[in-house]
Design a binder for these strands. Structure first.
Lengths: 243, 243
DNA sequence: TTTCTAAAATTGGTCTGACCAGCTGGCCAA
DNA sequence: TTGGCCAGCTGGTCAGACCAATTTTAGAAA
């Protein structure tokens, strides 16, 4: 066996501890840097092997964690794709934060805390485009009072846009993650009482408008209070359904 | 080609989409359930292959994500171990929450929000053993006013215990994660100004005592205010160092 | 030409078996 | 007893093969 690999390779860059970690770093940087955008397809595993000059095992072991964290998405027969930004890190955050929660109470309470603060800061920091985005979701809700699914979509986006307007990326991401759980919970409840969905929608829209007004006015305390009231009543209403 | 695949397959148990994901779920459950405790050594990969009845590839691809999330730790020649609980999910959470933050501001702000609320709830929910644990950290700080490292350790634990006393697991975990970053930041600053460490310690201890008093008294608003004041001044003091 | 279909090529998922480089523990010589 | 060595573990990597899902292609049918 002549395994002498004296290549034309005078001095190589220092290698990471493990090959796959080095690949992870590289891919992560490509995604974070925007070279690989959501929806993009990566070269096939066999291609990546050649490009990186490593075995397929290493490539796959690098992709696995990225897939597990929701940065990538593997589809057999089709390829590996960069996941939508909203889904990134969703899974590990869910594992870490929601993995083994005994009750919904922690979740609801934490959400309340995050969102009231988001409203507070949004009132102080919202840029014109943030306000426009929030208002757009209000219009969307108004136009879909009778379509529960659509309405919920705009509802969620309303809270999203407020989180974004708070100009705190970390807060935004936390709300983003928790929202997923909350959304599921809301959906379940509404399915149980479809007849109430419309009345909920009316109440909800009115409260959303109050929140928006406070944010637009730059009144942070009012915004916090309005969001507090909204979440309190909405939570109470939804909880009542099961009983 | 008449590939008629009429097997003797009456009703199969539903299999997970992929083998490795199933293994991930199983291992994750074992860790979350406490069957595998931090520090425990897993069977060797080759053993796991036999036990699960799968190839080594699948086992390794299951371990990889768990290692990447900090739940497991692989040591060549030695084995794979369950990581310390404090380190679990630290990495993905850091990637997800702190990965590409432009400034420390988001971090500090979020921490402020989380901890003030933790103090608030702790005042309402702290059990006797929580109070005892918090008080113990106060004594530890008092006994280590001249040992910066020790003092910081007790300082961190003080905030930890308050988070625990708030009886919200999710909040606790968030603080847990963010604390790591904050701790690093504090350490850096104090190293720059070791002469000020002692005066900081005195101020800090006094404020901690106020917080504890409010929690002990069950005065949630006072506890929140005291924590707010503490974090505000501590942050400002530390920021001043760099300038 | 257009449309539909079936085979071929491609892709991620899995298995096997092999080798490497660290680490462990026990054996043996000094 | 002490010191050093070596065999046998472990995780990390590689190569080649097969599977099933999917896409692409090419040919047949309209």
């Amino acid at each position: 066996m002549s395994e002498n690999v004296l290549q034309d390779d005078p001095f190589r860059q220092i290698e990471r501890a493990t090959v796959s970690d080095a690949i992870v770093d590289q891919l992560r940087a490509l995604i974070a840097g925007g070279t690989l955008k959501p929806g993009d397809r990566l070269p096939s595993e066999r291609d990546l092997c050649k490009r990186f000059g490593v075995g397929r095992t290493s490539v796959r072991e690098a992709l696995k964690p990225l897939i597990a964290m929701g940065l990538l998405e593997g589809r057999v027969g089709s390829g590996t794709f960069v996941a939508a930004e909203s889904g990134q890190f969703q899974k590990p955050l869910q594992w870490g934060l929601l993995g083994d929660l005994q009750s919904q109470d922690d979740l609801v309470e934490t959400r309340h805390m995050l969102e009231t603060n988001a409203a507070f800061w949004a009132a102080l920091r919202a840029e014109p485009e943030n306000l426009a985005a929030i208002e757009a979701t209000l219009q969307g809700m108004a136009a879909n009072l009778t379509n529960p699914d659509e309405f919920q979509e705009f509802d969620a986006n309303f809270h999203f846009e407020i989180a974004r307007a708070a100009q705190n990326k970390m807060l935004y991401r936390l709300i983003n993650v928790i929202r997923g759980q909350i959304q599921t919970w809301i959906g379940e409840r509404l399915t149980l009482a479809p007849d109430q969905a419309q009345s909920f929608a009316h109440t909800s829209l009115a409260q959303h408008r109050q929140i928006f007004a406070a944010i637009q006015a730059g009144d942070s305390d009012a915004a916090r209070a309005a969001m507090d009231h909204h979440i309190q009543t909405a939570t109470a209403d939804l909880r009542r359904i099961t009983k």
